[in-house]
Design a protein around this nucleic acid. Structure first.
Lengths: 200, 200
DNA sequence: ATATGGTTTAACCAAGTGGTTAACAAAAGT
DNA sequence: ACTTTTGTTAACCACTTGGTTAAACCATAT
């Protein structure tokens, strides 16, 4: 029996397993099981583990990057752009909880991977946002802080509570549901609090 | 020839390897090589990989936790506490760059590990700091934001630029040295900027 | 029908892995 | 001195892992 879309099926299974276990921890057999398919099929469609992994990596990045780029390039004022960014990024991470940690982890111990992402056609480019920061600072509407640092702050405040969820739950000693309430509250409040904190 | 401190030697080597490669990616032989020692010694001192890993985990946590606890419990005002925290945490991460990502990654795919940390005697307890936030809010000196969210912000702003270093370097498209300059600048500026941003 | 060519499977393989063992070396008791 | 305990090593083992292969399957074209 021929499944018309075995390749996508494999890729989805691989994303699930790789994101959770990482390159080193993932097992080809586990991916095959997840896809309910024979292990040899993985090699038939994607030569070997490394190439399957890279396909997953690219697909994961492709899920994330274009969306960010659209927001960065929007023709709206900085403040709306900040609101847009936090809101849609948080939505995204809520649906792909393992993805940021996965990318960071693999980026950490495969320097080559960084180079590959640099060359990615849809690589997120925050320059438009940086320029807007600069303009607002010059206009005296935003505190005089290097735009790059503002960007680091925005990213950190948005992403890290998700990346470090498990760590925070230990430190704060709170339950899963309680922590998720915090995150939901953040989604509606983060942007405006950040904006207020950088306004002169 | 008997080395009086083989155990510590192994532990240090294991920390190095485990932090970089993670539990799944680390190889017992590689740890032995790093310690310049026979592989069987690893099993002589620490039964198996799992137990060696847990010893490493505990030691890593022990390097981090007491220091945080001391600061949290200090009898100083909130603002000095914030300055103290960011400064010494940044120093710590500069010397142990892989540690936070390592803890988060392993915490993510071994739920049992979280339970173990919860029971750790020196588990960081941010309650004193949370209480101070609350007092200052009541006194009208700090904006009315839930203390837990303030803590999430403080942690995120301090830790994430280190955890996500590789990711940021790709997104910002800047060099290693340039990024490190940003981090150094952050060390001196972060605390006061954060304080100013939450003051009424 | 049957030949064709892409797809799928079970069985297999070589290399790498964590872990053991038995012999040996060095201290430490006696 | 010599016995016992602790530390160290090389060789080995069982098993997992990524990867291969040869045969079977199945849709389609002829």
């Amino acid at each position: 029996m021929k499944d018309i879309n075995t390749e996508q099926n494999i890729l989805n299974a691989a994303i699930t397993v790789f994101q959770k276990k990482g390159m080193a921890g993932a097992r080809m057999q586990e991916i095959a099981d997840e896809a309910q398919i024979n292990k040899a099929m993985l090699h038939y469609y994607f030569r070997n583990k490394q190439q399957l992994f890279e396909a997953v990596l690219m697909k994961a990045f492709q899920k994330l990057a274009p969306q960010m780029n659209i927001i960065f390039a929007m023709e709206i004022n900085v403040y709306d752009k900040i609101r847009q960014f936090t809101s849609s990024y948080i939505d995204f991470v809520l649906e792909n909880p393992y993805l940021p940690t996965f990318i960071i982890h693999e980026l950490n111990n495969d320097p080559q991977f960084a180079t590959k992402l640099m060359a990615h056609p849809n690589k997120p480019d925050p320059k438009p946002l940086l320029r807007q920061f600069e303009e607002e600072i010059k206009a005296g509407n935003i505190k005089d802080i290097p735009p790059v640092q503002l960007l680091l702050n925005l990213f950190s405040l948005t992403i890290f509570p998700f990346v470090g969820e498990t760590l925070f739950k230990v430190i704060l000693d709170i339950s899963d549901t309680h922590y998720h309430e915090l995150l939901i509250a953040r989604k509606t409040e983060l942007a405006d609090r950040f904006i207020e904190s950088i306004r002169t």
